[in-house]
């Protein structure tokens, strides 16, 4: 249907200017043939049908497209798909385990950390990166870490609470494992 990307089985030759790439997305190896100018967000959304990653601006400001690349939060509209070749990408669809939600997902629901839901995937991915690095952040640390993600609905106060909630739950889980 489109020349920008087409999922193929690895090894298929394609004419220039497309390139074949292999990306591990949410733990699954996936290959695609893409134009070099295709941005990662569009590969995820239109190519891999992972529409949880949203795009909300043209200038790398809004952060709705935030995903983790090799564990680091990245605005996926500001990275070409070819740059993800050989790397690991995690999107919002990869947050939940097979049977249960990630504590951040629970926290956002529990603390009313979302309204229209459009910025939420990016917020949660940025929050995950924060908690991976700093498991018990202060309010200021959360506000700072999320300052590359815009939300128009909530006023952020409940997003901060949601991340706190998740940190508390993750802390409890760690304690359980240690006990």
């Amino acid at each position: 249907m489109t020349s920008l990307f087409r999922e193929v089985t690895p090894g298929t030759a394609e004419e220039i200017p497309v390139r074949e790439i292999t990306v591990t997305v949410n733990g699954q190896r996936r290959s695609a043939v893409v134009e070099p100018r295709l941005v990662l967000a569009h590969l995820l959304r239109q190519g891999f049908k992972l529409t949880g990653t949203h795009t909300g601006c043209d200038t790398s400001n809004c952060g709705a497209c935030t995903v983790l690349v090799d564990g680091r939060p990245v605005k996926s509209c500001t990275m070409f798909a070819v740059q993800a070749d050989g790397h690991e990408v995690m999107t919002v669809e990869g947050l939940a385990g097979p049977s249960e939600l990630h504590p951040l997902q629970e926290g956002f629901k529990e603390e009313h950390g979302l309204q229209c839901g459009f910025c939420t995937p990016g917020m949660m991915m940025a929050s995950k990166a924060l908690l991976d690095e700093n498991p018990s952040p202060t309010e200021d640390e959360i506000r700072w870490a999320l300052s590359g993600n815009l939300c128009r609905c909530t006023g952020y106060q409940n997003i901060v609470k949601a991340v706190m909630w998740a940190a508390g739950k993750l802390d409890g889980e760690t304690a359980e494992v240690q006990a």
Binding site: V92, K109, G117
Partner: peptide, 18 residues
Amino acid sequence: RRVEDNRFIRGKGNYVDD
């Protein structure tokens, strides 16, 4: 707690561009 959150927190909202 909101019913609609169940899909939004999973990245399973259904916006026009989706």
